[in-house]
């Protein structure tokens, strides 16, 4: 039997209270082990789409299923999320790297229960996996952009997700850190069954990683396998502008 998609969107539209149509009839399935590249210009609705999947934004119409259920909140425990603004933290925020990653275990510990030894061990494991163990006592605001992104990815991963949503995770990160970040992501996707939805403007890098591509600019322009996607053919339509994709040395 064909396993159920982890995410199903059927004709999902979002119109904000101010009348702006943010998404127009998006239809999408994300399956286990998929790495979906979500492409589109600024204001195309990429962040809104991720927020719709997380139940943070209510759709005006359409059906959303997460792990086969329309009760999104019930299944969020199995979703890891790295928001676009993850790096822009107050440098005074008194959270250590360890504590930040530990937050990812909150739902697993359960309401009215304290975090236990198992949760702390899990955090240590993930910190080691992401090369962050030496930084565990460092204040989160004292890290570089690349290190911060790894911490937020570690925080998402410590919740043992089946689905990972990453909203422009490498914006503002230096090229070397981007390279490391994509390397980690590729390894995670290949070595585990985690499905990833990755929104980014780094078209060259993420189309090398992706198994599938979704191009949107409020409405859907392309959704399919990476090998069927032609950046030079599809992106000018999405961006409404000539687009030249420059190859560079990402994983």
């Amino acid at each position: 039997m064909q396993p159920k998609p982890l995410v199903e969107l059927q004709d999902v539209s979002v119109r904000y209270a101010n009348g702006v149509l943010a998404l127009d009839r998006i239809t999408l399935d994300v399956n286990q082990k998929d790495l979906l590249a979500l492409l589109g210009p600024n204001g195309a609705g990429k962040s809104t789409l991720l927020k719709v999947i997380l139940g943070l934004v209510k759709p005006t119409s359409g059906i959303i299923k997460l792990f086969g259920s329309t009760d999104l909140a019930k299944n969020l425990k199995s979703v890891g999320y790295v928001p676009q603004s993850a790096q822009a933290r107050d440098t005074n925020l008194p959270f250590s790297v360890f504590e930040t990653v530990l937050l990812g275990r909150t739902r697993h510990a359960g309401l009215l229960h304290r975090m236990g030894t198992h949760d702390r061990k899990k955090v240590e494991e993930v910190l080691k996996m992401f090369g962050l163990y030496e930084l565990k006592d460092r204040k989160i605001g004292q890290l570089s952009g690349g290190q911060t992104q790894r911490v937020f990815l570690a925080k998402a991963m410590v919740s043992e997700p089946k689905l990972l949503l990453l909203d422009e995770p490498t914006s503002g990160v230096d090229p070397a850190s981007k390279h490391d970040f994509y390397g980690i992501l590729e390894r995670l996707n290949k070595e585990s069954d985690i499905a990833v939805i990755l929104s980014s403007h780094d078209i060259s890098a993420i189309t090398k990683l992706a198994t599938r591509v979704l191009c949107i600019n409020r409405s859907q322009f392309f959704c399919g396998l990476n090998e069927d996607f032609s950046a030079t053919a599809e992106l000018p339509k999405v961006y409404d502008h000539p687009v030249e994709v420059l190859e560079h040395d990402h994983p």
Binding site: V79, L112, R114
Partner: peptide
């Protein structure tokens, strides 16, 4: 103390806390 870990998460980042189902 009863709701400590949830309060800490909401204090850290409300959007991320909501995204985890809190």
């Amino acid at each position: 103390l009863l709701f400590f870990k949830e309060l800490v998460y909401v204090t850290f980042d409300e959007t991320q806390a909501r995204a985890s189902g809190i």
